[in-house]
Design a protein around this nucleic acid. Sequence first.
DNA 1: AACCGGATCGTCT
DNA 2: GACGATCCGGTTG
Length: 217
Amino acid sequence: MIDDWIPLDRGFFNRPVLEVAPELLGTVLCHDAGPDGVVAVRLTEVEAYGGADDPGSHGYRGQTPRNSVMFGAPGLLYIYFTYGMHWCANLVTGPVGSPSAVLLRAGEIVAGLSAARQRRPGAHADRDLARGPARLTVALGLTKQHNGLDTVAAGSPVRFGRSAIATERPAGTVLASARTGVGGDGAHFPWRFCLAGEPSVSPYKPHVPKRRNSVAP
DNA sequence: AACCGGATCGTCT
DNA sequence: GACGATCCGGTTG
């Protein structure tokens, strides 16, 4: 278990998403699912969405039933469904009314390894358990039931914090690059942040235009 | 290690 | 009716 837990409070999350996102690297996200076990992940890769004008953000075109949690309080969990089969988890940042969130893309399992393995039977290596946003969501046992959950509320089963685990493995250099899978006008935003040299960082490369052997017309 | 295709459905146009 | 903030397994080099 985690003895020396220092939770991140709402004030930490109530800041611009571009400040919160890189500082989240190296912190620990923990889910206590009760009988199914406790799993904790040390975050190694995240992406920022929202802010002033971000065409890549779900909140860019205004509030809808799907993205309404993004407009809520900092510290909420925003979990959405994509590609017909995958769930992805985000942390809402900034003040109420500003649709900003950090997509949790990858991490290293630091507690509850056996429970994480059970939830991801297909994974070949432990570093793959939470490598990628949909994988991380599964390994932690997060589902659509957790959409809108307040991670700062007393007794929340999901919470962010710092611990000796993170201190023993200090966050190295933070790298910034373009966000994975984001095209269009927001494609060039260097809002993907990861820790250098981490095996658990998602291998997927940023969106690139297709190449052909022949020369363009 | 890189590349491909298939799976699969909620959400907004 | 189109398209995703994706993953996996197979194939090829």
